[in-house]
Design a protein around this nucleic acid. Structure first.
Lengths: 64, 64
DNA sequence: TCAAAATGTAAAGCAAGCTTGTCATGATTC
DNA sequence: GAATCATGACAAGCTTGCTTTACATTTTGA
């Protein structure tokens, strides 16, 4: 899955640490997810989308 | 997370095995997810929503 | 320029998602 | 009432998501 987290985060001028704190996960998880190391769980995807006031489909996209 | 999979599946008159086959997962996974044993991964949630022609938010709901 | 902040990366370990296989139960239908 | 189908449930095992800790590299900004 691709995601637009880095862009959405940049719009708010948040650091990965800021975002991690808001989401209740570790900074390493945010970093790994932004860099496509793995996909977030569904509950975490919901929290991310809600935080950015977007639909999940507007934050995440199935690859190719 | 709650989900409406059982209802959506019933509308199509599919068995859990039918759905599992369409999704490319085991019947046990479909059964476990329908019964709330665990949440699907994000990629699987996307496949489920797409199969039912719904937004992820229309199939899954954060609890409480 | 130089220090601090932000990001990347990696290892080890626990938790959650998913598998195959198997069995029990209830509903269908012949 | 016997066979079949659909569902529920459980165990063992593998993979993936997430953690903490730690350190290296890049970016920022005074």
């Amino acid at each position: 899955m691709k995601n637009r987290i880095r862009v959405l985060r940049a719009e708010l001028r948040w650091t990965q640490a800021d975002l991690a704190k808001e989401l209740g996960v570790s900074r390493n998880s945010v970093n790994a997810i932004e860099n496509g190391k793995y996909d977030p769980s569904l509950p975490l995807a919901f929290r991310i989308a809600r935080l950015f006031k977007r639909k999940i489909e507007d934050v995440f996209e199935e690859e190719g």
